[in-house]
Design a protein around this nucleic acid. Sequence first.
DNA 1: CCGGAATGTTCATGCGGTAAACATCGGGCA
DNA 2: TGCCCGATGTTTACCGCATGAACATTCCGG
Lengths: 215, 215
Amino acid sequence: MAAISGGKTYHHGDLRNALICAAVDLATEGGPERVVLREAARRVGVSPTAAYRHFDGRGELLRTVRTHAQRLLADAMERAAAREPGADDPALAAERRVAALCRGYVGFAVDQPGLYRAAFCAPRPAAPDEPAQDRQTPDPELRAFTLLREALEALARTGTPRFGVRPASGAAAWSAVHGLSLLLLEGPLRRLSAQRRNAVVDTTLAMVVSGTRTH
Amino acid sequence: MAAISGGKTYHHGDLRNALICAAVDLATEGGPERVVLREAARRVGVSPTAAYRHFDGRGELLRTVRTHAQRLLADAMERAAAREPGADDPALAAERRVAALCRGYVGFAVDQPGLYRAAFCAPRPAAPDEPAQDRQTPDPELRAFTLLREALEALARTGTPRFGVRPASGAAAWSAVHGLSLLLLEGPLRRLSAQRRNAVVDTTLAMVVSGTRTH
DNA sequence: CCGGAATGTTCATGCGGTAAACATCGGGCA
DNA sequence: TGCCCGATGTTTACCGCATGAACATTCCGG
């Protein structure tokens, strides 16, 4: 049983999870660099080294947070797409879905900058010995990318025959929304007014939708 | 006179510059997070606190490195554009210049990951009190962006009249190359083979060139 | 009921940022 | 010329963080 009453027990009962929650909170507040083992332990009310019973160290804790953040990002995208009204024209619907997913993506980044950055924090230093992988799909875990790619493929299928989708257009589209998010978040485009920001987002989405098609 | 002979003098003579060089080296080796005040001082052969006579602290040192890295990035872009052969058709030439600049951008990121990341390291934590600026041009210092925007404007001018460039297309194009760079560098697209990477770059550039035009 | 495995805790080490007090040097001014 | 001040380095010190080692407590299966 978890300790229900206020009385502290020597064993926490669910420390791993509690630490993850605290770490996610930290990331939410200040991004990956604020995910600090000692602080997470402090918030849970446990000694710093206790965390080592559940994680290899700060690195693994951070990786766990990253996984959570990626999930939340994909959730936000799906919610945004679900809110989008359907359309009679399937091509229009597909186009709208792509745009909605992208908006959800950028919206999550802007609303949850800490989590967004945590979702893409690199496992530094990158092990240079890892084998080159040649998939176009980078990581099955990354639902965000899958959503985007599938939406683009659906868009291609609905198009008139003279349209097609370039092979790596998923990655290209992703690049655009990812770069846009980072420039808005912590890059030189932070500090834009909401109005200008929307204009930039719209222009970028137009580029993605119209620019991924061959003609 | 600077100390030419091996003999150490109490005063370094050009410590600020020496520290900057060391810090740039550190960033080159391991990105902004490896820019460590103590290590820079160590390399220069000076006590850690000496740096405080020339910088407000690690933050300012890092900001200085960032400025240097941005300059190097823009230089790389210009070199890439300069290597590009001209074309008789001005529209084609303008298009090539945009592509070359973008390639230079991504190439710099891939060749100099540490410096590239340093060029965009955020001044964390971002002061939330700073006023929203409404320029489309984020920072006159950022020559990289200026180059890209001007090339896109030139491209628009050469186009047949039915083409135009969307207002924020500079930011959109920048988003694409920036996101692409980061995904390739430390994101889920690292570990792509050079071949796949080139395919992704080509697709993204095509998106930028064809997708920034209204039609 | 007992002993080991899980799970926490206390110490200890090392690194990095930074401030305060002290030392040294170089150059201008009496 | 000689002295004194300001610029530039150094020492010492404090704090937070990551992490390992040794010790303590609890729980659970035999």
